[in-house]
Structures are given as structure tokens and as C-alpha cells.
Design a protein around this nucleic acid. Sequence first.
DNA 1: GTCTATATTAGGATAGAC
DNA 2: GTCTATCCTAATATAGAC
Lengths: 203, 203
Amino acid sequence: MNTQKDNTEEKILAAATDIFMVKGMEGARMQEIADKASINKALLHYYFRSKDKLFDAILTKMLNLAFPQIGKVFFSDLPFLERVEQVIDIYITLLLKHPQLPAFLIKEMNREGSLLFKFIEKQYFAIQPILKEIQNAMDRGEVIQMKPEHLVVNVLGMCVFPFAARPMIKNVVLNGQDDLLNEFLKQRRSEVKEFIIRAIQPQ
Amino acid sequence: MNTQKDNTEEKILAAATDIFMVKGMEGARMQEIADKASINKALLHYYFRSKDKLFDAILTKMLNLAFPQIGKVFFSDLPFLERVEQVIDIYITLLLKHPQLPAFLIKEMNREGSLLFKFIEKQYFAIQPILKEIQNAMDRGEVIQMKPEHLVVNVLGMCVFPFAARPMIKNVVLNGQDDLLNEFLKQRRSEVKEFIIRAIQPQ
DNA sequence: GTCTATATTAGGATAGAC
DNA sequence: GTCTATCCTAATATAGAC
């Protein structure tokens, strides 16, 4: 049963997500969020007490969206190169749905006092098995030898960077046209896959 | 001859650079900049009239540092693959000197009303010859065939991303240790080069 | 050119009526 | 639960003495 409370809370969360994702914690204004949710500032505070708490709610939501993705598909018994392709696929698909996510997270992880650090520190233990598994694949000769950490960062960089730097890509590389940008970002799925495979397949 | 004016102006610029690079336009405080420059707020305004104008001065300075780099070395008569290696070398060297630059620019290019856009739009004409030259190298068979725009973004992503996402790399991939992070970033020079070369060299 | 003191505004937060 | 009105602090900016 949907009370009015639930309904308003959802409106607030939706509005806050939109605003915070684009402007970040420091750029966002409570007034703007209230306007977008078609309520007033006082009601924002009634539901979330403070800007910090509201922001934390949004940040947590987006983090749970972004981070757990890798692990899911990675530990199957498919050949390693296919698993890499799947990871790239999943990530680009996620980013096409949330293009502002990379810039948002980069902004946030470089902001002092961000709650993001609490979250980030825990992830160390989550990624160790992945690095280990990459090393195993290398030892089996499924992939060329290199430092697993650098492979991870290379894949992440190629997937994430064009989204974080969309405004530059759009205006510098393409000709300022939104539809060209969208097309370009969609192409990343296959482009990154092919590029990575060429770089890491044996011989 | 150095008047007191020059001296103070330099102190302000140095302090403002430090603060703005780390905190961005919205996170920085005039008081903090004044403190760092060992002067008071009023003097900041005496020299630069407003926070906006001061920020613009810093932004312009950093942009002129970051953007014109590529072109310089790119149009020599060296083999294409060697030129790519040189570009990577120059960029990673620049980033090791200014590790906060990527996050700063990503923050800024995603901020509405940023003066960065005026600058960014002009760069379209600067990069066209580079894309053309890449295409030529592909047609000559010096490199594998792909969309030049994606090659540029791949190189840029691998160079820039680990700097933009330093806090995450440090805590998630490495073990929260600053010296490990530094070592890792230095390794990027050779790692990126080798990775790119494997991905784009013919056959 | 540099300071202290003050004005001004913006923005987060609360009180209190309904 | 929702609103209007108001408070309070932080932050940019200016006035005016030295």
C-alpha cells in the first residue's frame, strides 16, 4: 500500500538523484531539488534532515549500482577472453544508461570528507580474488603476461573515460553534435572489446 | 625588476592553483586561498576582483599546459608507432607532475557555465589534422585499421583515467598505500605503451 | 598595496501553523 | 505530511583607514 509518504519520498529521491548526479554534492542546491520534486525545502529536511544525509542516500544507491557488477559474470567457466568481453559489455551497457556516473564518482572520490572512502576501502577485499583469477589465466597461457592491476585499469579506463569526458569528446573529437556523441559511445562496446582482445591475446 | 605587486600576485596565483586544482571552483574558498598565500581576503579581491576571475586565470593557465602537448611531437617523420609512444610518454610525464589535473578538468568540463567550454570548442579544429594523420598511417599500413577517434580516446583513457581515479586505485586496487600508488602511476608509462602497441601494430 | 571592519547574499536548516 | 515564514551561518565582496 502506497502512503503519501512513500510517494513523496520517491519523488525526492528521483529529483535528488538527477540533480546530484549532474552537479555533485557541492554544486547541488536544496532549493533546486525541492523545485524538481515539486515540493518545498522544508519538506526535504523533514524527510532527510540534512543535505548530507540526502546525498549519502543517493551516493549509496549509485555505488551499489556501479561496483558489484564486475564480480557477477567474472567467475564462470567460460574462456577468459570471453569473460573479459562480458565484463566490458556489462559495464558499457550500465554507463549508457547512466552516462553521468563516471564524472559523478570521480568528482566525489576527489572530495575531501566524502563518505565514498568508507565504501571504497571495503572494496579492496572484493577485488583481490579478481586479480588472482586474472593471474591464473595468465599462468594458464590464456592471456599474455602483464600486471593484472594494469589490465584492470586499462579496461576500466577505456570504458569509463569517454563517459567522464563526454563534454570534451563531444566538442573536441566530434563536432559538438549530441547524436554523434551517442553513436560514438555506443560504438565503444565493440571497439573496446576488439582493442583489448588484440592487446592481450597470446602470440 | 620585481615590484611588491608582482610578488604578491605570484603568491596568490600559486596558492589559488593549489586550492582550485584540488577542490575545484565550487569546493574552493577564498579565505583558504588567502590563508595559503599569507594575505587576507580583501587583497585577493584587490588583485582579481572576484572568485570567478581568479578561477578563470588558473583554469586558462592549466589548459595551456594540458592541451597543446599532443600536437608538438606528433608531426615528425618518425614511424607512426614511435610517435604514439612519444605522445604517451609526454602525457604521463605531464600527469606525474600534475596528478590532480585530470580530476580537475573532468570536474570543470561537467560544470554548467564553465568557461572551459569556450576553450574546448576551439580545439575541434586543432585535433582534425591529428585524426587525419592517424588515418593516413592506417592507410599506409603502419597501424591496424580502426576509427581514429576511438584510438585517440583509448590512449587518452588509459593515460588519464588512473590519475582521475587515484583515490579509488589507491584503496581498491592497491592497499591504500601512497608509495604503491606512486609506483603504479610511474609504471603506466611503459605499461600503456606496450599495451597500445600490441593492440594496434599490424598482423 | 595592505589591512580591519562591515555589508550583502546565498543557502542550509528550523519553528510553527494548518 | 506539507506549507510559509524565518533563522543562522558561511562565503563573496566592498568601504575606508593606514
